[in-house]
Nucleic acid binder design. Structure first.
Lengths: 207, 207
DNA sequence: GTCGGCATACCGACCGGTCGGTGTCCAAGG
DNA sequence: CCTTGGACACCGACCGGTCGGTATGCCGAC
């Protein structure tokens, strides 16, 4: 009985004592990414997290909720990051390059969330799906703003619609999970810089 | 409730005489794209196709088989198309641009297959998944060959690994389904040409 | 008469979600 | 100090329903 009774759900040192909701989200993320949302039963998730179904339904309203929370967390973090980079005082090209490279790095750091986003988004309930899409859209619009800024100033080509360029780029980003492997020759940052270079160079005014 | 005639069950007008396997694949494709593989029951598929489960399991070994056939058909077609464009006698830049634009157009023409590919690939049985991946890989390698050809001749920049560029581009292509809408302002060919331009310009040697 | 081409009825497995119960902690009352 | 009560965190057996797959029967063609 040396178990110190950390009553409050706060972060303790041991991973065993991590808050139950956190553990659930963590293992759910891994399982969803590996097997897909529908193929992962609630039973599997709670077993992986070392709790029971009762615990899970105590903290989450449904299996959908679990998925939604995973999305919401990632979106919040990426939006925060973009906002901080985009509104700095650096020159535009640097801001865009940083934003592009950063989103690649963060996508690689959380490849699981990325995979889930791709494969399981449409399995959310329609209203939650709508909420996610709205948030995602805001993110894209912020990014597009940078491109448009460069088009207005003459730094970037104007013969390609900004939204096409943005969708072009984020398609690549979302698909990192289907080819990037951690043991490979390229670090996350290297890939990020490559991608940023490709984007910036594709935006050069035609010569 | 005995069906008097061996004929159609009400509607299914037009291609009523289309072969049963074809009808099954056709409707399965639509349903898989709309609701996802796991969320689509065999019952729904056979009802949409106007047949019964007995018929389906007469022609296909499993639900997985249906999905696999859909993949195989698309892959065969895309590979054939790429091969024909890539091996023509046109200048390299034109061949790459045509290949890039064509794959965009064909992806848009068959947005359903594209969506399925993205969302349901990992739900195939491991061996079938392996077969699909191998075929896909051959396709990418052929495309990469074009990029490497241009790098060797000095037409393209050499500071970006060819496989990174190829993954960059196909990420964008695979994600067309998540934003392209048919009623929009851009035709499939216009998007294809935009994408091809972006790729070619990103490949220009720096300077 | 038997064989391909289906239809129909049905099975066993499994899954998301529920619900009555249990242990623990804390605050208040005695 | 001890008791009490009840809020909170969690347990786990259970249920209604669905799904992929199968067993078997029917029917027209050869």
């Amino acid at each position: 009985m040396t178990r110190a009774s950390t009553r409050k759900p706060g972060e303790a040192a041991g991973d065993d004592q991590a808050a139950v909701p956190r553990r659930l989200l963590e293992h759910a993320t891994k399982l969803f990414a590996k097997k897909g949302f529908d193929r992962t039963s609630v039973q599997e998730i709670v077993e992986a997290a070392g709790v029971t179904k009762g615990a899970m339904y105590h903290y989450f309203g449904s299996k959908d909720d679990l998925l939604y929370e995973i999305y919401a967390r990632v979106l919040r973090e990426q939006t925060r990051q973009l906002e901080s980079v985009a509104s700095s005082s650096a020159p535009l090209r640097e801001r865009l390059a940083a934003a592009a490279s950063d989103v690649v790095v963060s996508s690689i750091d959380n490849l699981d969330d990325n995979t889930i986003f791709l494969q399981s988004m449409h399995q959310l309930s329609p209203d939650k799906q709508k909420a996610v899409r709205a948030e995602r859209r805001k993110y894209h619009e912020r990014f597009r703003g940078l491109v448009e800024e460069g088009q207005a100033s003459g730094e970037f080509r104007t013969d390609k619609p900004a939204d096409v360029v943005v969708d072009f780029f984020f398609g690549s980003v979302h698909h990192l999970g289907s080819w990037y492997r951690r043991g490979g020759t390229l670090s996350a940052r290297q890939v990020g810089d490559h991608y940023a270079d490709l984007l910036l160079d594709a935006l050069r005014p035609p010569g």
